[in-house]
Design a protein around this nucleic acid. Structure first.
Lengths: 158, 158
DNA sequence: GGTTGAACTCAAGTCTACTTGAGTTTCTAG
DNA sequence: CTAGAAACTCAAGTAGACTTGAGTTCAACC
């Protein structure tokens, strides 16, 4: 890649267009801008004009939301991307890696829970103490607050 | 299982104890009760006394929250469990199944995203149109709002 | 050049999920 | 019996993520 793109007009998008393409309400786009997640140029008449690459940022925000990642975290991740210029492959790569790590962590958590639930259903242990999912209280209660078993001990890494 | 438990006093728990065992703040427990997610008996002096099985309900609530499931949905799932008596294996089994379905769905979604991101990282396609994750706009924009590619085409089956 | 749809700003409102505070009562250990 | 910890209720506040509304300005087509 690194195709030497000429400084073309790079057709800018209005907020309405970005909203349509991403499925995100205009008001939400305003909000994201307030939080510094996205940005836009302005016409002489003060209307927003988005670079095409902003659509990608918005898409990533949507994904993150879908995964329950708070906007502040998203902001952190996106902070690595330049607002003003088209992000390079390397830029995206960095962000992708961070994202992927988050995804993998979440998936692991889900799998753990899924496994435990499956176990419960399979073994019919639900009524008694053997079930890890539903009985984190008895053995673990003494260790202090927090449903450790349930949440998995994701202590450090996060 | 199905061990014929005598109608023992079944040591009831105070709100403080439930809070400690589950790691959920007392105020949150009050709140959950308001929403009908949990319930408790009362002493003659009007203090809450929880049955042990309520700890499990709370634990499930915690899990659901962790998965980003809104409390209203949790309420629906828990609606199948009796408040007043100890849920039977069958009761839990039903809830577990619903839960597991949700888990599986979420995990699939994550995996899809993970896969796409991995592809992006692996092939270095991020700069151009081939990347499904970051380019849902160009080809799909014409189809109307919504980041379809990103969210996966969760049309029918699920 | 006028009108109409799209945008703009800024303040306020909404919804979820709780937390905090005030003032009061109950429980439990000494 | 009494002091202090723990609970209780009810109202109000908070934080995140937006939406809604009011009043105003642009932009684009006929």
């Amino acid at each position: 890649m690194t195709q030497t793109t000429r400084p073309s007009p790079e057709q800018l998008l209005s907020i309405g267009e970005v909203s349509e393409r991403t499925g995100v309400a205009k008001s939400a786009l305003h909000y994201y801008e307030q939080l510094g997640l996205i940005s836009a140029e302005r016409t002489t008449g003060n209307q927003r004009r988005y670079h095409r690459h902003m659509v990608r940022r918005v898409s990533l925000i949507v994904v993150a939301k879908r995964l329950g990642i708070p906007l502040t975290d998203v902001a952190q991740a996106l902070a690595e991307l330049p607002h003003d210029t088209k992000p390079t492959t390397g830029d995206w790569r960095r962000v992708s890696k961070v994202w992927r790590t988050t995804l993998v962590e979440r998936r692991r958590e889900l799998e753990r829970l899924e496994h435990e639930l499956t176990g419960c259903i399979g073994c019919g242990c639900l009524s008694m103490t053997a079930c890890k999912l539903l009985n984190p209280d008895d053995e673990l209660g003494a260790e202090g607050p927090g449903a450790r078993r349930l949440l998995g001990s994701t202590d450090a890494s996060e």
